[in-house]
């Protein structure tokens, strides 16, 4: 299959968005996908959008223990983010999305897909399978719904990496987590800036420190979006 089109603006004009009847996720047919603005990069991504049909996804995954467990945990979150932005793009972005908003969301999609594929490769045979997601509570036509969900995921991602960093024992893994978390924080601010221009973080990081959540708290917050059961019981606790 061909690559995602990555040219800025081209093919992403919001007024060319899909009609509301076609926008319904479950009504998406292969033909509709092929004619949508974005061509899929690989069959694995295609599968993400047809959850009930071809579940390569396991019903349950175990993240494992030690550093591998933490990396699988990060991989799970990157899968979630990548799937989300891929779907946002696939559905032609929300109604009235500006060129700048599309540019940001498309960058986020590419970054998160790269993160996901990095973890998959880095973990190799230790990698958990592909998770199945449920974004049915998101109204992908609605700007506020799409951006607020993005904000939730980015903030959660930052808090997750900050909480997970101290659980790692290998300094190389810590550095790579650090390389990713600052990009997630950059994303979070860009999304904030779209929602409330020039107010980003003014009323969020009021204590000068980012949040840091333990894995259980993060997974609970993400649970409504994740169909696959995630067993995190072997993750390091402290």
């Amino acid at each position: 299959m061909t690559k995602f089109t990555d040219s800025k603006g081209k093919g992403y004009k919001p007024d060319q968005g899909l009609s509301s009847s076609r926008r319904s996720f479950l009504q998406y047919s292969g033909a509709a996908l092929a004619t949508s603005a974005i061509l899929l990069s690989g069959c694995e991504q295609f599968e993400e959008f047809i959850p009930p049909k071809n579940p390569n996804s396991p019903k349950k995954v175990n993240l494992g223990s030690g550093d591998i467990g933490i990396l699988n945990y990060a991989y799970a979150l990157e899968q979630l983010e990548a799937a989300y932005y891929t779907k946002v793009a696939l559905l032609g972005f929300y109604l009235g999305a500006s060129a700048e908003e599309i540019r940001v969301l498309e960058d986020l999609r590419q970054h998160e897909v790269a993160h996901r594929e990095f973890f998959e490769a880095a973990l190799g045979k230790n990698a958990i399978g592909k998770l199945e997601f449920d974004f049915s509570m998101v109204d992908f036509r609605d700007r506020n719904s799409v951006l607020q969900t993005a904000k939730t995921f980015e903030d959660l991602g930052v808090a997750a990496y900050n909480g997970a960093g101290p659980l790692l024992t290998n300094p190389d893994f810590l550095v790579v987590a650090g390389k990713i978390v600052s990009v997630e924080a950059r994303h979070a601010t860009a999304i904030y800036d779209l929602i409330a221009p020039n107010e980003a973080f003014v009323d969020f990081i009021d204590d000068g420190l980012e949040r840091a959540f333990p894995p259980m708290q993060v997974l609970q917050a993400a649970a409504p979006f994740i169909v696959t059961e995630i067993d995190a019981s072997n993750l390091p606790k402290a």
């Binding site: 650090g178 978390v181 924080a185 950059r186 980012e210």
Partner: peptide, 11 residues
């Protein structure tokens, strides 16, 4: 790490 991410938000 909590400071690090705030600097990234600023940036």
């Amino acid at each position: 790490l909590q400071i690090h991410a705030v600097e990234a938000r600023h940036a």
